[in-house]
Amino acid sequence: MSPAHDDSTGTSTMDADANTPSPSHEPVHMQTPALNEHMTPKPEAAEKIFELTDVSVRYSGKLAVKDVTVGIGTKQITALIGASGCGKSTLLRCLNRMNDLIPGATVDGSVKYRGQDLYASNVDPVQVRKRIGMVFQKPNPFPKSIYDNIAFGPRVLGMNKDRNLDEIVENALTRASLWDEVKDRLDESAIGMSGGQQQRLCIARTIATNPQVILMDEPCSALDPISTSRIEDLMNELKEQFTIVVVTHNMQQAARVSDMTAYFTVEVAEDDKRYGRLVEFAETETIFTNPSDQRTEDYVTGKVG
């Protein structure tokens, strides 16, 4: 089988390669044998990739989220849920230092990624974002061709020097289950795609840079139910290889896709200022069936929010 590919430069082994990570990937992408030998490990027991301790974020001095302590497991999906203004997106953006782009944003406490403090003075946020990619609420493809959208990250990171760019593009689109839909129009503008396709393109674009973690900030809130369900399927496939942290307003989505769930709430301080707090962090099943906090129960059963 040889795929129709406009930009293909000769024969390649794309098909063999399409669904499995190539050997040139960083070793961390390989399946850990020890993990497979166990029955099904409890999500709680997973090795932690992020350790957050007493993290508070302020925007120009105004508290947005206070004292969050949480550990995020490797190769699982962690959902952050809660009402608007509870600080879940703010917290997500701490994980790859995206908050740096907002003037006046400050982060207190410690955010450790594989034991390394992301906010240490010698850390380059650009290097952080190379390993921790992000998918946004509103699909934001570049106003370039579909091919150039996927190729952007690899080009910027210089990945195309040792691997064929066409191969990277096909591989990423295939893993985002978008290849069959777009393989004949790779040179068309991504702006002409539907919203759901654009969002899968944005996921493919992130996959192409081979990150360790993918942060998703309400990735389906602008999409119809069918596109949403495709993205959820995709997330389930991707967690084989990536750690995913997803912010969502949709509780069913959190229940469907995530292994662990963190519930946040809005607290009102004495001076009437509002800020977010973590109420409960547990296995998703526990959060939705047997939460330990009354506020969590009220939220997941639909009594509030």
Binding site: M98, V126, G133, K138, V156, T209
Partner: peptide, 21 residues
């Protein structure tokens, strides 16, 4: 702003984001 965020999110620096996006 979304285009800049997309670029930064992919690990591009400020100069690459300015010039390429």
């Amino acid at each position: 702003q979304g285009l800049r965020e997309a670029s930064f999110g992919l690990g591009a620096g400020r100069f690459q984001t300015s010039l390429r996006v």
